[in-house]
Design a protein around this nucleic acid. Structure first.
Lengths: 128, 128
DNA sequence: CAGTACGCTACACTATTTGTAGCAATACGC
DNA sequence: GCGTATTGCTACAAATAGTGTAGCGTACTG
């Protein structure tokens, strides 16, 4: 099925429009992708070190994500071994920096507790 | 689905540390999560409209993501029906705005073409 | 040569996502 | 009231993606 086209063109599920933001959103919305970028933000890591940093995620996915990220031009395999962000990848990562501050704020905010309001009225959350 | 604890506490795969950034990264690194936030950035949408906006994604995942996002306090179900971002969700979405610009720049940059450099092999293709 | 670390792959198993169908509750027109 | 349309939401089998463990081939070091 010729699954690999140019990583910017291939129409995976979640982005059939071809709009770059959608393709990017789809790429980043895969398991471990954001985490990998995050772990690589400071310094390059060897594949093994990256695996450790990512809570021992299975090498299968890591390898898959790393390949996608390399195709996208965000990550590269340094000649001495070890993965690092490209200039582009570093830019992308910068974009997520505010996320860290946001996460800190988020964890300390009160849990909204998901009320079944709207129209279910009263207090019957799941009765159907 | 009794497996839901507080969305900030539950230790899903990908975030066993409990560090908020990890939890957030894990939550956002699920399929459709980023897309949903993106589609909701302008105005609230009904579940059906959201589904249409997301290339007819299956209601199952959408519903799951929407619930997670509601538990996290990023999205809420308006009283008139229709999902919208909360103040917190809007903040989070702001964080991603630079992503749009980045995506545009990205699509027009040259494809790096993922060479199999690094170690020995000069041009052996990664066919499998 | 043995010992180690590297990038990467195989493969069986499990979890998540997809796609299609459909339900209950509300809102409108008649 | 009765149809009809829309809403949020769920069931469930099939497909896909991710997990976990093992191991390969290639450098390095001693």
């Amino acid at each position: 099925m010729a699954k690999q086209a140019d990583s910017k063109t291939r129409s995976v599920r979640g982005s059939r429009t071809g709009r770059p933001i959608m393709v990017l959103l789809d790429l980043l919305g895969r398991r471990w992708t954001l985490r990998i970028l995050w772990e690589l933000r400071e310094e390059p890591l060897t594949s093994r070190a990256l695996r450790t940093a990512c809570d021992e995620a299975s090498p299968t996915v890591l390898q898959a994500r790393l390949t996608e990220l390399r195709e996208a031009g965000f990550v590269e395999l340094g000649d001495g071994g070890g993965y690092g962000l490209t200039a582009l990848g570093r830019e992308l990562c910068e974009t997520f920096m505010p996320l860290h501050r946001f996460a800190e704020r988020w964890k300390s905010s009160p849990s909204p507790r998901l009320r079944g309001e709207g129209r279910g009225e009263g207090e019957s959350p799941r009765k159907r």
